[in-house]
């Protein structure tokens, strides 16, 4: 370890806020103006610590006269050996000292599409929003061609889309200094298309293979898609924290699904979104075999036992005194 040295002030998340070069040891740190590294932190003493070589020849920081001391990993230290990665705290200030021969990490591959910024993704996103909305209105439009229905749906969807994307762009600007509106526009458009396509695929699969359960819980897929949208917005703002954001998105998705189950249970007495599958698609999509009537009725007969158990259950004020049949 040899000079020159760099003293770095770090933010809580590890980002370097300030970096100062010191050509030789010792480096005196404190609030007083006769220090080599001056702290503007009223929780530090005028002469708080000094960076120097220790008895074994390694770089170390030594605490001087101070009320709050040198803190490393939550513990107060009198001396602390500095390997280039050790972060110590003086008052409210996090510091790191590295010598000029410190080995930095290898270069990270750049996966960002730098051309996919600005008007390109914005326009693509808008086009996707418009087309999906129009398709949605068209498929359910059973009146005779009223343009106003398409217009109102478009205006509503575009307003929601712009407010959503605009909000994320503002957050982006706040934290990272740039809007990246185009990308934030493209993400919800992808989300909308994905949710439409998945719900259609789910309906087709349920209808084709008699898998009614699929349509009863398809709102959870929509929730997962919203969580994924949030994830992509977040990594657009800060691409360095993918793992943390992924975890947040999974949590959001689980919370949303849990809430949905609770709301369904409270309002409808069941966890599913609907009591039965209402999708009636073109019959040519049917692949699994239809059941005979008697088999279906045998299934209906099974419900009696559950109903009778439920009837016998005490439901309080109005259900008391259940009589058995005579």
């Amino acid at each position: 370890m040899s000079g020159p040295y760099f003293v770095e002030t770090l933010a809580r998340n590890g980002d370097v806020k300030q970096r100062q070069r010191a050509d030789a040891l010792p480096i005196r740190i404190g609030r007083a103006y006769d220090n080599d590294f001056i702290l503007d932190d009223r929780h530090t003493s005028p002469h708080h610590a000094v960076v120097e070589f220790g008895a074994d020849g390694s770089l170390q920081v030594r605490a001087l006269e101070s009320r709050n001391g040198v803190i490393h990993k939550g513990r107060r230290q009198t001396t602390l050996s500095l390997d280039g990665n050790a972060v110590f705290r003086l008052g409210h200030t996090n510091l790191r000292v590295r010598s000029v021969d410190f080995c930095v990490d290898a270069e990270t591959a750049d996966t960002t599409l730098h051309g996919w910024e600005g008007w390109r993704p914005a326009l693509t996103g808008l086009t996707m929003l418009v087309l999906t909305t129009l398709a949605g209105v068209w498929i359910s439009d059973t009146e005779k061609g009223e343009a106003i229905r398409y217009l109102t749906a478009l205006v509503a969807m575009l307003s929601i889309g712009l407010v959503w994307s605009g909000s994320w762009a503002m957050v982006n600007r706040l934290f990272e200094g740039q809007m990246r509106f185009g990308r934030h526009m493209f993400i919800p458009a992808c989300g909308l298309v994905a949710s439409e396509v998945t719900s259609l695929l789910i309906a087709i699969a349920a209808y084709a293979f008699s898998l009614e359960t699929l349509t009863r819980y398809d709102n959870h897929v929509a929730i997962a898609i919203v969580a994924a949208m949030v994830y992509f917005h977040l990594i657009t703002i800060n691409p360095n924290r993918t793992r943390r954001f992924a975890l947040a998105a999974v949590l959001v998705s689980l919370l949303g699904s849990g809430l949905m189950l609770m709301v369904n249970y409270q309002s409808g007495g069941r966890l599913a979104d609907e009591p039965y599958m209402s999708e009636l698609l073109p019959p040519s999509l049917r692949l699994s075999a239809d059941k005979p009537v008697s088999e279906f009725l045998a299934g209906a007969e099974q419900m009696k036992a559950d109903l009778d158990i439920e009837r016998g259950r005490d439901v309080g004020n109005d259900g008391e005194g259940e009589e058995e049949p005579e």
Partner: peptide, 22 residues
């Protein structure tokens, strides 16, 4: 309580469901 199924009575394929309450 409800059951639902695609059924065929030999003359007409249908989507059917029966809900019952006590």
């Amino acid at each position: 309580q409800c059951v639902e199924e695609f059924v065929d009575n030999g003359k007409l394929p249908m989507r059917a469901m029966i809900c019952a309450r006590a």
